[in-house]
Structure formats: structure tokens, C-alpha cells
Simulated scan of single mutants.
Amino acid sequence: MAEKRKRLEPNLDLSLKSPADPEEPSNKVLSLDEAIDFELKHGYVDPDMDLKKLRRIISNRLSAQRTYIKRNEYIVELEKKVKDLEDKLAIMTPEMENVKGRNKMLRLEAKMLQEQLDISTNIYELRTEQMEEMKLELRRLKELEKALKRKS
């Protein structure tokens, strides 16, 4: 029984690919009519098989082959994206480390400049305070001089 069934089902392993150049792998899937004609022409199926059953079997196999091809193309595309991203990462990682180092250096420089600014601001405030004190002292001395001149 299994032997009879095996004999009735077509061997479609190689027949679904385009017969133009068997050496070159092809992603072209034959149309249903082309695949049926190819199967019948090359004797892969029993010519007495019900055409409706043959069409359904070949249609299912063609659909499976299209799905397989699409999935493989998608995988190849994803692998290419992964490689591109890995290449980009390989380029960007040293660049990022360089930028991080430069950032650290700039932060230290900014901190140093802020400290210098704080020191300069403190010195300015101190000198301004001293100047105000001196002005007050000068005014007091001038008033004292005027008072002494009035008394003398």
C-alpha cells in the first residue's frame, strides 16, 4: 500500500526549480501550469493521476518553495544587516571611546576654569570691599582734616 502511494505521488524535489540551468541556483519558482507540464514531460508523475489532485500537490509544493525562498532571502537580509551593524559598531566603538575621553578632559577643563573664575570673582569682591573700606577711610580722613583746619 505504501509502495503504491509512493509511486502515485510525484517526486517534485528538483522539478520545481527552473530547468533552464540546473548548475546555477535559481530563486525563480515555476507557475503552476509550468510545473505541471514539467512534471508530466519528464515523467516524474503518473500520467493517469487525477489532475485536480496533481494540481493541489504541486500548488502546495510551489507555495512551500516560495515560502522557503522568502524566508531564506529574509534571513540573508537580516544577516547582512547584522554584519553592517557589527561593522558600524566596530567603527563607532573606538570613536565613542575617543569622544568619552575628550568629554572627560573637557569636563576637567571646565571644572578648572570654574575654579579660576571663582577665585577671580572672590579676589574682585575682596578688592571691591577693600576699595570701599579705603573710600570710607579716605572720607573719614578728609572730614578729620577739615575738622582740624576749622579748629586751627
Rank of each mutant, 00 (worst) to 15 (best):
M1Q: 06
M1A: 09
M1W: 05
A2R: 11
K4Q: 10
K4G: 04
E9T: 14
P10M: 02
P10E: 01
N11D: 15
D13E: 13
D13H: 12
D13K: 14
L14W: 13
K17Q: 07
K17V: 05
S18C: 09
P19G: 01
A20V: 07
P22V: 08
E24C: 10
E24D: 08
P25M: 03
S26W: 02
S26A: 04
N27I: 12
N27M: 13
K28A: 09
K28V: 13
K28T: 11
K28C: 06
L32M: 03
L32N: 01
D33N: 13
E34C: 01
A35T: 00
I36Q: 00
D37S: 11
K41M: 05
H42E: 05
G43Y: 01
G43W: 01
Y44F: 08
Y44H: 08
P47W: 00
P47T: 03
L51V: 12
K52H: 13
K53S: 15
K53M: 13
K53E: 15
L54P: 00
R56C: 10
I57S: 02
I57F: 03
I57C: 02
I58H: 00
S59P: 01
S59V: 03
L62V: 03
S63F: 05
A64S: 07
A64T: 06
Q65H: 03
R66K: 11
T67L: 05
T67Q: 06
I69M: 03
I69E: 01
K70G: 03
K70Q: 08
K70Y: 09
K70E: 07
K70V: 06
R71S: 09
R71H: 06
N72R: 14
N72T: 12
V76S: 13
E77C: 10
E77W: 11
E77N: 13
E79V: 06
K80T: 08
L85A: 10
E86A: 06
E86C: 05
D87W: 02
D87L: 04
L89P: 02
I91C: 04
I91L: 09
M92H: 07
P94L: 03
P94V: 03
P94E: 03
E95S: 09
E95G: 08
V99K: 11
V99A: 11
G101E: 11
G101M: 08
R102T: 14
R102F: 08
N103R: 10
N103I: 12
K104G: 12
K104W: 10
K104S: 15
R107T: 14
L108F: 10
A110P: 01
A110L: 09
A110N: 12
L113W: 04
Q114T: 12
Q114C: 08
Q114Y: 08
L117F: 14
D118P: 02
I119M: 10
I119D: 12
T121N: 15
T121C: 13
E125G: 02
L126N: 12
R127Q: 12
T128V: 07
Q130H: 04
Q130E: 07
M131R: 14
M131K: 10
M134E: 11
L136Q: 14
L136Y: 09
E137A: 15
L138C: 09
R139W: 07
R140M: 11
R140Y: 07
K142V: 04
E143Q: 14
L144N: 13
L144D: 15
K146M: 12
A147Y: 05
K149N: 06
